[in-house]
Structure formats: structure tokens, C-alpha cells
Design a protein around this nucleic acid. Structure first.
Length: 431
RNA sequence: GGCGACGUAGCUCAGCGUGGUAGAGCAAUUGGCUGUUAACCAAUUGGUCGUCGGUUCGAGUCCGACCGUCGCCGCCA
């Protein structure tokens, strides 16, 4: 008898394994038919069917029969072609060892219909094929991001999560006790990136952001991973190129490496052509009005208007030149249009909504000071941010893009919580 | 924060209009079946009807408050 060599589900199905294999994994599904047991074994690479036959190998048969759904098992056997097996190959078991027997599995096929239950049991339900596909796509998106920034000469930095100043509105901060002082959890690393620019010129960051927005929608998490980048000597047009290049790279990599996962999720994804369309805020205002979703100049793009416009697009697109009234204080305005910012949102098609927000920052000390004062913001909170403008701050721009939002769009997920292993939302902080 | 739904078995739901101490499917357990793909067939097990209070001889059902979940909006990545 030949020795069993360690292999994986994916290698067995692809025909890359030796004839006698050992595979380690979990029982994803089990059927018994008389003296035959079929087990769909799952490992980190995929699924493969194992059959155990009474009479052929009674020990393997007994092992397989006594296994339960989600038990951890080690299987040794012969790889055989069989048209009746999913994928056309199966492992005919000689040995079937239950390493860790699972109790009665709570995720049943009716439970799969209940999003609330699945997320209550998220620590277990993440073993399902759709959750696995979403996580593999997310990992591909993150991997593409690391490569993209390295290829473009950006330095990865890190920034604190305990902060004092708010980058976005102050009402959306989570506060924590910091040895008797109040600290907040960071909403964005943007200010730290700006500080790093004179040292590194092109920087990016990958870390969690915390937003205490009481948003109960399919696109909000209270804790999410954000990709942010900031470039010195780069103005807004260059900033948009960087963003579309990144999203494009994410899609390219997922299309290249995650076809099976896209199929599992029922997602049809196409490579969007570059450059992405640029629609000015004023155009968006007019288009939304024509589509029956009017709003006032100066307001942020309402969700209905954004969705209506996005349904007219078949690739991601930018909405540019937002009014200052809809933007944070640090946004730079056009010299001849003081109420219009050099900024843009990157919006996904199909009604998915905002993926990224970016813009050019004010680099002049007096202009920024004036802006802070005119908006009645506490100057002392932004003292160090302001001070950066005293020591050689060139024109610069940057953006932030949500990892889970990008994954949600690319993977075609209905809700952003499916793009997170353990999502944090308004009503969910466990498990 | 606003508007709207919904809480009955481990899960999905029916029952509530016309009040009289709960029912199905799935899951689980046991048995049967030597090619299953959401397997199938049979039997068994399983419920302080979200919580508290009110009306009533009697409340899963009617009324009130509270708690929780979900959806859409505002806000945003």
C-alpha cells in the first residue's frame, strides 16, 4: 500500500495531488445511503467529496458514519475520478479519523434564511460558503491594495487609534477614558498622513476607523477598515487618478484570482474602463432634478438622487466639486469659486453608493486658520494640524476608501456586514 | 435622531379578525436504504407564545408600557 501524502481539497479536485492522499478539514455536509457515507470535506482551499464504503474499509466507514456536521477530521484514501462526485473527483477513504467531534450544528438550512440569527451565530456561520467567498474576496482586495501602493511608490505608515481631535464631525466620535482624560477613537488617519508627507511625500495607511454615527443602513459599520492615501505636490485631478487606479486594480485581481468565489455569490463583475466618468456636483444636481429627485444646491447628494444617478452608470464614477457646505473644513476651494471645493466622491454603480471620498487640502496657514475660525471650530483642537502649515506644506491631496464598502460592491453583497468577519453595527457588538 | 414593520419549538413560520391552556416544515435523535448533491422514507423528542402590567371567569389572541430585532431615511467610508 502506498504512503498517504498530505494534500488539499483544491489540489485533489485540480488533479495536482498524488493518488494516495491525506486531507485534513471539516465535515461540511454528510449523507448516508445504506452502507455508503458521503462527506463533503472543507479545508481552507475548498471542498472535496469523501466516500466511505462498508465492506471496502469498515474502519473508514465507521469513522465517517460517526462524524457529525462540522467535526474536524483527517481522511486518508485514494483519489478517484467519478462523474457522480461534485467536481468529478472524490477521495475513497481508507481511514477516516474524527479528530474533534462537533455537537449538533445550529446553522440549519432554514436558519440560513435568517440574517439576524446568522449574525448572532457569526463565529459559526462564517464557515458557510458565501461567508468564505466574501472573506476570500476581501483578502484579495486588501492584497491588491498593498501591491498597488508599493508599485506606485507609496510608503505604508501607521497612526494612533487614540486621538483627541475630530477629523469628521465631533458628534460621531466614540469617547474612551484615557487615564482620567477623555480620548476618542480615530475616525480617520488623514491628519497623521498629512504630518508624514514632508518626511515621505507619498503615504498610505490601512487601519480601522471608528464612527459613532447612528446609521442603520446597509452601508454603515461603526468600526471599519479604511484605506487612506495622501500625496504631496499632487492636486485633485492626480488624486482621482490614484483612486480609480486602486479600485481598478482591486477588480482586476478579484477577476483574476477569485472567479469561483464570485460564482458562489452569484456576482457578475466586469472590469470598469479607465478613466471613470467625472460628473460635477452641478451636473448631478441637474440630472437628479430631471430624474425626479431634486435637492438644494449646497446640500450633500441625497441617497435617492445618488442612487438614481448611479443607475445611469455602468462603472464607478466620480462626483466632483462639492459645495463647501457639504464638506469638512480642511477642503480647498477654487480661487474663483469660494463656495466650491476641489473634492470628489467615488460612487459605485448599481445603487451601492459612496466608496471613497477625497480632495485637496488647504496648505496655507492663514487660509486654514480663517476657515477654522469662520466655522466656529475650536482652534486649540487643531493646533498641531494648523502648525504643519508653518513648516513647508506644499499643495497636497488624498482620499479614504472603505475596505468593506469596496468589498461589498465587488462581491455584490447586499449588506456591508457580510464584508466583515465580525461586523460592528449600531445594534451589534457581539460576537 | 425620524418613519415603518416584526418578536410563538434550536431555525423558518401558521394560529390572533370572532379570547376557551398551541400546530406545520426544517434541524436533532433512532431505525431503514451501497451513489448522495437542500438526499429520501418512518418513528421519537422538542414551547413560562419577548418582558411587565391591565381588561376578563379565562389572554398566544384585546389594551398599555418597556426591551429587542429588521428595513428605509438623515449622517458617512
Amino acid at each position: 500500500m502506498s504512503a498517504f501524502e498530505l494534500s488539499s481539497a483544491a489540489d485533489v479536485l485540480a488533479g495536482r495531488s498524488p493518488a494516495s492522499v491525506e486531507v485534513r478539514g471539516w465535515v461540511a455536509r454528510k449523507h448516508t445511503v445504506g452502507g455508503l457515507v458521503f462527506v463533503q470535506l472543507r479545508d481552507g482551499t475548498g471542498y472535496v467529496q469523501v466516500s466511505a464504503r462498508k465492506g471496502a474499509s469498515d474502519a473508514a466507514y465507521e469513522g465517517a458514519r460517526s462524524s457529525t456536521k462540522e467535526s474536524a477530521v483527517v481522511v486518508r484514501g485514494e483519489v478517484k475520478d467519478d462523474r457522480r462526485a461534485p467536481g468529478g473527483k472524490e477521495i475513497s477513504a481508507k481511514e477516516f479519523v474524527v479528530v474533534s467531534r462537533a455537537e449538533s450544528w445550529p446553522i440549519t438550512k432554514t436558519a440560513a434564511k435568517s440574517a439576524g440569527f446568522l449574525f448572532d451565530k457569526r463565529r459559526l456561520s462564517i464557515r458557510g460558503p458565501k461567508a468564505i467567498a466574501a472573506m476570500k474576496i476581501r483578502a484579495e482586495v486588501v492584497g491588491a491594495t498593498f501591491d498597488y501602493f508599493r508599485e506606485n511608490g507609496f510608503h505604508l505608515i501607521s497612526a494612533p487609534s487614540f486621538v483627541q481631535a475630530a477629523v469628521e464631525g465631533g458628534s460621531t466620535l466614540f469617547s474612551v477614558d484615557y487615564f482620567g482624560k477623555q480620548a476618542n477613537l480615530s475616525q480617520s488617519a488623514q491628519f497623521y498622513e498629512e504630518a508624514a508627507l514632508p518626511a515621505l511625500q507619498k503615504v498610505w495607511i490601512f487601519q480601522p476607523a471608528f464612527r459613532a454615527e447612528k446609521s442603520k443602513t446597509a452601508k454603515h459599520l461603526t468600526e471599519f477598515w479604511m484605506i487612506e492615501a495622501e500625496q504631496a505636490f499632487a492636486e485633485q485631478p492626480e488624486n482621482m487618478k490614484l483612486q480609480e487606479g486602486l479600485l481598478s486594480k482591486m477588480v482586476e485581481r478579484v477577476l483574476a484570482n477569485r472567479q469561483a468565489e464570485l460564482k458562489t455569490l452569484g456576482r457578475t463583475l466586469k472590469q470598469p474602463p479607465l478613466p471613470f466618468p467625472r460628473i460635477s456636483y452641478d451636473e448631478a444636481l441637474s440630472t437628479a432634478g430631471k430624474l425626479g429627485f431634486p435637492f438644494e444646491w449646497g446640500d450633500d447628494l441625497p441617497t435617492e438622487a445618488e442612487r438614481a444617478i448611479s443607475l445611469t452608470q455602468d462603472s464607478p464614477f466620480f462626483v466632483t466639486d462639492y459645495p463647501l457646505s457639504a464638506r469638512s473644513f480642511y477642503h480647498m476651494t477654487y480661487p474663483d469659486r469660494p463656495k466650491v471645493t476641489k473634492s470628489a466622491d467615488l460612487i459605485a454603480p448599481e445603487g451601492v453608493g459612496e466608496l471613497a471620498t477625497g480632495g485637496q487640502r488647504i496648505h496655507d496657514y492663514h487660509e486654514l486658520m480663517q476657515r477654522i475660525q469662520s466655522q466656529d471650530l475650536p482652534t486649540e483642537s487643531f493646533a498641531w494640524y494648523l502648525e504643519l502649515r508653518k513648516y513647508g506644506m506644499p499643495p497636497h491631496s488624498g482620499f479614504g476608501i472603505g475596505v468593506e464598502r469596496s468589498t461589498r460592491w465587488i462581491a455584490g453583497l447586499k449588506h456591508i456586514r457580510s464584508a466583515s468577519l465580525f461586523p460592528r453595527t449600531l445594534s451589534r457588538i457581539s460576537p
